[in-house]
Simulated assay, not measured.
Amino acid sequence: MRRETKSKDGLTCFRLEKDNRNNLVKLLGMSKNEIAVEYEILIVQTGLSKQKSSDNILSLLGITATYIKEFADINLKVITNI
């Protein structure tokens, strides 16, 4: 299993680069019992501008973020061009 260590704001996280099913099942078992896991969803839309986005798009993103937070306790972030 290959992992790449990343850090953000002094915290480290791991991204799986390549793996097989058996190791993923083992990792899943560890994460449920031994390791605190925090998830985050990132949407990258470089062609989207905050200022030029329609109210419908902004509303949809807001509703989606609220739904994901309420039902899965996962934060949603949208990365835009400007």
Rank of each mutant, 00 (worst) to 15 (best):
F71R: 15
T66N: 10
M1Y: 09
D19W: 14
F14E: 11
L58G: 10
T80L: 09
Y67E: 14
E17N: 15
R21S: 07
K26M: 09
Q45E: 14
K32M: 08
S53V: 00
N20K: 13
L61W: 03
E40F: 03
R15W: 05
G29D: 06
K77R: 15
S31W: 06
L27P: 02
E40I: 12
A36L: 08
I68E: 01
E38W: 01
K6Y: 11
I79V: 10
D19V: 08
L48C: 11
A72K: 13
I63E: 10
N56P: 01
I57C: 04
K77N: 15
L16K: 07
L42D: 06
N23D: 14
S54T: 09
R2W: 06
G10A: 14
L42E: 09
S7D: 01
V44Q: 08
K18A: 12
K32C: 05
L16S: 05
G47E: 13
K77W: 07
I74L: 08
K50I: 14
L27V: 06
Q51T: 14
I79A: 09
K6I: 09
G29Q: 04
K52S: 10
L42W: 07
E38H: 02
K32P: 00
V37L: 14
E38A: 10
K77T: 11
T46Q: 11
E34F: 06
K6E: 02
E70I: 01
N22T: 04
N20C: 09
G47V: 03
E38C: 04
T5S: 03
S59W: 07
I68V: 12
